[in-house]
Design a protein around this nucleic acid. Structure first.
Lengths: 343, 343
DNA sequence: TTGAAAGCGCTAACAG
DNA sequence: CTGTTAGCGCTTTCAA
């Protein structure tokens, strides 16, 4: 382990070191380093020069304790492997970059207990705000959020009761809207393919919305197939093969996400199945990936980027009209029929 | 904004509140909450009960300042959209989960200046270690790393000089190995397709390795095509079309990543190009996605998960043999010929 | 424009 | 097993 420059170091440098090296009081050094208050130009330069020369890195822990201010925003998401969340993160970062706030990511793996412990851990750093996915939390988690005394944004989903602010789309309505599109195109025997995860509440709500929409036309979901783990594209193929083998007269497949939908599409093309006439397909999310596929899978944009930017704006206090908290922002996803629903 | 329970709250709860509520000294409360030292069972329970009832969340800022210990590990990566990094993260989390250490993610967008500022920001929280991608850093960043006095792991790449420990593969060697496989299969007119990013040092090194390997057989790279931004799958299609239009007699295409490679493969299949006889293809990374494609793209596994776990073990002091720092772990990627290199 | 004093909320180290 | 005493490194507040 290298340990160059900063000679007899052991103890990390403190403000006092910079103070001594520059012959200026700690307080003034602090002012210079935070660009707070008025400091004469010569003093300023002496301080900066000394800090740079020593390689001083401020201790935010001490700073935060003294000032009771922490420029961290806790972001709690279910997974990093599902591209949806990194995209929300991108939206969040984009807004926070200009505010001096820093996102800190925690991952729950879709487990409520993990969410609870990650939240506890993060709150113990006294962040300036919390953004987390979904409206479903353990009682303890909800209690922590309510008592945190900082802005909370529940993101992605608006179907339920929020602790403070909420930004997202209605997944129930998304499912409903898909049902309407399917029925309008004349499909009758509909199958659903999705994740096994009992805690993927948003996929569950889409399915409920779908069933509700079908029921309104007197139609019942003909079959369903669930999976967990593994390569989504491959799973999409396998599930499609399985459900069609079991139920050859299905004429529409609704996938809970675009990756398995893409796998299904590739499978159907391989098999020479006539999409969308013999069989219609649709996914969910509007992922970029779809653009390179041989045919455009029908999908619905989940407004991921906008969810991220809006959530971040709420935390950063940047909402138009100076709204302070308790906001409810429902975004409207657009249905893209692509080439896999007949017209 | 809801603000239930914890009645006249304004000020967040402190240890003292729990101490008063339970009639036990602050010190003992602290011991119970950290499970440190011996505390009688009845006292323990009174404290826990009080803490739970009040909804107390410890203040790690104060704790860290007092104990000079921070259970955070800084992880600095170029991007979240490139699935490679989330996978490394997965490896890191998996190991850290059992150690009480918490990863904190920072993203640089492949910009050295961003890396420098993210690093500065993170170091100011005095983490227990740093894991960052690559060996190329600004002078200032390198100086900070050297002076940090904590374990540093540079991950992904081993071609260069490390600050402390390094875990990864040799991308130069990966390119070389690919060149050998290409030549062995009898391809002669080779094209390279990659990202524009001047700071994707690892892609650059693979290209250099490829050229070196080809040169050994007296062959020069016939053409190259670069891109930036957009859907990688779609870009892969477009670039493949462009390079083949310009240079129809190319008989092998080496892509700098699997996503554009997959796009290229889909394009070739669409066009009815005979892969791998008329045209060979290869990507890089061994991404899961490939498994669902109609044909298996040749690729090379980048050992992402193992890089993550090893890096985390080094930071957590979990290396076999109790090694302490300054480790160099070179992993060996395996070449998978798939169905797109002829045999 | 600069400095001195007094903590922020917690834990190390030591006593009892 | 439990309590007391000092800080951790910075910023707030007030004074010069």
């Amino acid at each position: 382990m290298t340990q160059s420059s900063n000679p007899d170091q052991k103890r990390p440098l403190t403000l006092r070191d910079v103070s001594e090296a520059s012959g200026v009081s700690e307080m003034t050094v602090s002012r210079v380093l935070r660009s707070r208050g008025d400091v004469s130009e010569p003093t300023r330069e002496r301080v900066l020069e000394a800090a740079r020369r020593l390689g001083y890195v401020p201790n935010k822990i001490a700073g935060a304790l003294a000032s009771q201010r922490v420029n961290l925003v806790a972001v709690i998401i279910p997974s990093l492997s599902n591209m949806v969340y990194p995209e929300v993160m991108t939206g969040i970062s984009r807004v926070l970059e200009d505010t001096g706030l820093q996102p800190v990511v925690g991952v729950t793996h879709y487990q409520p207990e993990r969410e609870e412990s990650v939240l506890y851990e993060m709150l113990s750093w006294r962040p300036s705000g919390v953004i987390l996915a979904g409206l479903e939390h353990s009682d303890a988690a909800r209690a922590m959020l309510e008592n945190a005394g900082i802005p909370i944004v529940e993101a992605m989903d608006v179907d339920g009761e929020a602790v403070d602010s909420v930004v997202g789309i209605s997944h129930r309505r998304a499912g409903l809207q898909m049902a309407e599109a399917i029925l309008k195109a004349g499909y009758k025997k509909i199958g659903f393919l999705g994740t096994m995860m009992p805690y993927d509440h948003r996929a569950r709500k889409r399915l409920e919305g779908l069933e509700e929409g079908l029921a309104a036309a007197g139609i019942t979901l003909a079959d369903r197939e669930f999976y967990s783990g593994g390569s989504a594209l491959l799973k999409g193929r396998e599930m499609t093969e399985a459900i069609l083998a079991r139920n050859p007269d299905l004429d529409f497949l609704y996938y809970s996400n675009d990756m398995i939908g893409a796998g299904g599409l590739l499978y159907c093309l391989d098999q020479g199945i006539d999409v969308p006439n013999r069989l219609g397909l649709a996914g969910f999310n509007g992922v970029e990936l779809l653009q390179g596929l041989p045919r455009r899978l029908a999908t619905m944009d989940a407004c991921r980027l906008e969810i991220g930017t809006t959530a971040a704006q709420i935390i950063a206090g940047l909402r138009p009209g100076g709204v302070v908290g308790g906001e409810r922002v429902e975004l409207t996803p657009t249905l893209q029929l692509g080439d896999t629903i007949r017209v």
